[in-house]
């Protein structure tokens, strides 16, 4: 599959949250990390749909964990960013850097 995939804003946020959570990246922790870092509570439907879409694009991979009694015997679904996802994410963030270089945006330490 050639060419860089362009990500939407929420897709980038989800990918970054997955990277930040490392091996513990599943729905609950990803949503909590997004809520903590962005002061934005993602709708469950939007979050899981985005995760599915990212996996369909090959940007993340998922694996089922062990079921736990806390979850009613249901397993967790852990996510990892693939190398393709890293490329797409890096490209998107590099674009932001290029666009914000030299700008003095209020509330930001570096622009």
């Amino acid at each position: 599959m050639g060419g860089v995939q362009y990500l939407g804003e929420f897709e980038q946020i989800v990918l970054l949250a997955i990277l930040r959570m490392g091996d513990d990246a599943y729905g609950v922790t990803i949503g909590a990390e997004i809520r903590q870092q962005t002061a934005r509570a993602p709708a469950a439907g939007a979050l899981y749909t985005t995760l599915d879409r990212l996996e369909e694009k090959g940007l993340v991979s998922s694996a089922m964990g062990d079921p736990t009694p806390q979850r009613g015997g249901r397993a967790k679904r852990f996510f990892k960013v693939t190398s393709t996802g890293m490329q797409a994410l890096t490209q998107g963030l590099r674009s932001y850097q290029n666009l914000t270089r030299g700008l003095q945006l209020p509330g930001l330490e570096h622009a």
Binding site: V28, Y48, R74, A75
Partner: peptide, 17 residues
């Protein structure tokens, strides 16, 4: 709408929350 495993994982997340 999705595979049973994914459906269970999502419901499990909601229950855990």
């Amino acid at each position: 709408l999705m595979t049973p495993e994914r459906a269970a994982a999502m419901v499990g997340d909601l229950k855990q929350n």
